[in-house]
């Protein structure tokens, strides 16, 4: 299981949005959701808003903001790499970018199994 400060890859558009949100809300955090509706997508909160648990795994940081995923979900994702991206669209959830009419999404690629 990684516990790393390494950068989580992000597109230019996603990085620009992260910086805009950080300018408004201060330090941020990301947690990758699972399940229904807006699941399988990253949620962005003010740092500390979402209570991390013992089994959450830190995948790294986006522009200095921590990025986590539930441990059991990570077990099923770990053979793929992720890139944070953003698309236009009215997503639901408590993620901070929703009022801007855009939504963070994850682009994935297959990587070698460790």
């Amino acid at each position: 299981m990684p516990e790393t400060q390494d950068p989580v890859p992000a597109t230019e558009a996603a990085l620009a949005l992260v910086r805009r949100l950080a300018a408004v809300h201060g330090p941020l955090m990301f947690h990758l959701s699972g399940g229904c509706c807006d699941g399988s997508a990253p949620m962005c909160f003010a740092a500390g808003e979402f209570k991390l648990g013992e089994r959450d795994v830190k995948l790294g940081e986006v522009d200095g903001h921590g990025f986590w995923i539930g441990g059991e979900q990570w077990a099923r994702w770990s053979h793929t790499s992720i890139t944070l991206d953003v698309v236009p669209g009215r997503g639901a959830s408590f993620s901070l970018e929703i009022p801007e009419g855009v939504r963070f999404v994850i682009r994935s690629a297959v990587c070698a199994r460790p």
Binding site: S33, G34, F50, I98, P99
Partner: peptide, 29 residues
Amino acid sequence: FGIEAGKPLASNRRISKVAFTGETTTGRL
């Protein structure tokens, strides 16, 4: 929006129960 209206509702001390359908991160929140 969730962060502007959903959170003030879900975290409000004046509700006696909250019901939600959605995904797991927001479910935990």
